[in-house]
Design a protein around this nucleic acid. Structure first.
Lengths: 149, 149
DNA sequence: GCCTTATTATGAATTATTCATAATAAGTGG
DNA sequence: CCACTTATTATGAATAATTCATAATAAGGC
């Protein structure tokens, strides 16, 4: 996974977002945001590889620190599928879901199936106040289905 | 978490299930099945603690081996919530979902919200053939909500 | 009761991630 | 533009859950 220098426009947009959230604008944050935007659902390792196009000496741990901070800030969304390291994306405002291929592990975005907030009204919640519903679809992607036959 | 000696009836039922799946009946498997049935959503550590009421010297690794085998066999269902070790339950035949309390981590069963197979028909699957939908609700349980106020 | 093969035991290894602490740099006020 | 405060980043070590390889054991068929 190679890097792509962020366009001035992209940089400006992310800088604005960072400031809007009261965060300092650093080259590490800009590089991470750009990388995740370019490669949605990338894992920390991939992000680090991409970021190293701009910042060759950044360590994986530093990338983890930045990813965690940006996730907490709300600029990134963290996805944690079983049997996969955590993945990150910049699409944070809609509550879309994900489909993971059981063959190759690739992840695709999936919009809500039923209106805007699907599955948010389970029948019996045992007194729990439900805040969000994480939906993870599992299946076979077209490529893996073709290979299987 | 203490053990409860399995009733003869329970043991007989699980023995039958094991044989029906072409598996040998061992005291380790019976103890694990009984423990998980008694404590739904227990983590491996809890299962080991419970099993040790019958088999004081069983190691955690052995419990892991048995849990993995029973899960593969289909006698147990494994739940893998983020930030929690895997949990196990004996309720395997319905596709029910789970609600996890963000306060205390407790897990409750939640029946399907919309008919029998909710959320199984997303709008755009990018060519993926969806097989199952894992739904994980997050919220606050009654106890934690009370404490928060 | 033997014998074959499934099952279990166990110590070591793995992987993703966080933590504590030290070093650095962003933005602010003079 | 410089200095300074405090956020941010760097880094090595630690952690936690789980799996793996291999050796020991025991179920169930004959």
């Amino acid at each position: 996974m190679t890097s792509t220098a962020a366009s001035a426009e992209t940089t400006a947009r992310w800088s604005e977002e960072l400031r809007a959230h009261g965060r300092r604008v650093t080259k590490q944050r800009l590089a991470v945001l750009t990388a995740v935007e370019q490669f949605p659902h990338a894992v920390a390792d991939d992000v680090a590889a991409s970021v190293r196009g701009d910042l060759p000496d950044i360590s994986l741990q530093s990338v983890y620190v930045v990813l965690a901070d940006l996730t907490e800030t709300g600029l990134l969304r963290k996805i944690e599928p079983p049997h996969s390291p955590a993945r990150y994306e910049t699409r944070v405002d809609d509550n879309h879901h994900h489909a993971i291929c059981t063959g190759c592990g690739r992840i695709e975005d999936v919009d809500c199936a039923v209106g805007h907030a699907p599955c948010l009204t389970p029948e019996n919640t045992h007194g729990m106040t439900i805040q969000i519903a994480d939906v993870l679809y599992r299946g076979l992607c077209a490529d893996c289905a073709a290979q299987a036959s």
